[in-house]
Simulated assay, not measured.
Amino acid sequence: MAFGQGQDLSVLAAFKLKEIINEDPITHSATLLGTLPTGKDDERDQAIISLQKTAFDAEEVGRLDGLLSSVKLLESNDIYSWLLGSLKPRDAADLKINVIFPATEVHVRKYTRQNLVLVRETPELYTRIVEPYIVAFPPSRTEWVQNILAHKKEAHKVLYEEPAEDNKFGFLIIPDMKWDLVTISSLYLVALVHAPRGKALRSLRDLRSEHLPLLRSIKVQGARVAKERWGIQDGGLRVFVHYQPSYYHFHVHIVNANYTGLPGQSVGQAHLLDDIIALLELDGEIFTKLTLSYNLGEQHGLYVPMQAAQREVLSY
């Protein structure tokens, strides 16, 4: 099974729903677990499809008579009224659709709605529990990142690139898959790091003073790209790093500062790039010394061992 010109709708029509594993009324999104045909006889494999309603643009909402086909009044009280409306056919898309196929059980756990718990990770717990977990990840889990860095996939979307040279780290900037590429208020870019041969940069814990030129360049070039292409002025971006990240190849999120409500921007996961740079300027090895607090979902691979280890962390 493959997506291609003219095939996408027919392929999605072959999707068989197993269950809805997540839904969010705030982001107007739903995540579906099911199966799609592999293209080999009658074989099917696991698939995850995420649906999210796209945003309106300012010009579109300014002419409601052309936007709406019907309206039903739900309630009215003094100056307040609540209505439900149906859209007319639009030039703009109504849904953004992301597909993971074939989806592993790790993907299913990641995208399933789950309860969160706050844990504290000391440097000793990182060395004993977290680092072995990261090292054990197979390279196939980040093959899609390598495809982008090698220009095998999404090469036409690269906005800026600095290649790695000798011992110098590089990076490229590309639109994040979560962005619809249209709505500037929800602009979402990501900087993926090019590591020199023989070196790895996996997460916040790996950062040292030697990475300061890399981080400063990501900050400068991300701001320049956003300003030149989309008119976003100084101070109009929120630039941050996740810990724990969703994948262990170091990357930086570059998001419109007005794009609020994203789960990944919450305290306990997002670390502002400016703060990271300031900390490394104070102490180039600070991320080997800090105790870090963050949320873990009950489906995360670190949930059980980190929960069990919390009794060792005495100061909360």
Rank of each mutant, 00 (worst) to 15 (best):
K289S: 07
A2H: 13
A223I: 02
F15P: 01
R90G: 02
I134E: 08
D57M: 05
F56S: 02
P245G: 06
L204C: 07
K152P: 00
G284C: 12
L314C: 03
R113D: 12
Y243V: 08
A30D: 00
H253S: 03
H271D: 02
E228T: 12
V108A: 07
K168A: 13
A257R: 13
D180A: 07
K152W: 03
Q299V: 04
S86R: 12
L204H: 04
P245W: 06
P37I: 11
E124T: 12
L32N: 01
K168W: 05
P123A: 11
I174A: 01
R113N: 10
K18C: 05
L149M: 06
R197L: 14
T54S: 11
G301L: 09
N77G: 00
F3C: 07
S81L: 04
P263A: 13
H156N: 13
D78A: 14
K72E: 14
R44T: 15
D24V: 10
G222E: 01
V119H: 02
L159C: 06
V61G: 00
S203E: 09
V255L: 12
P175G: 05
N115A: 13
E23W: 11
A14T: 13
S86N: 11
L279D: 13
E121W: 05
L67G: 02
D176R: 05
K16Q: 15
Q307Y: 02
F56T: 02
I232H: 01
V158Y: 05
H249W: 13
Y294C: 06
I97N: 02
Q244W: 01
Q307A: 09
S81Y: 04
K18N: 12
G39M: 09
E154D: 15
P138F: 08
R238D: 04
H249Y: 08
G301D: 06
G222Q: 04
S76G: 10
V106Y: 04
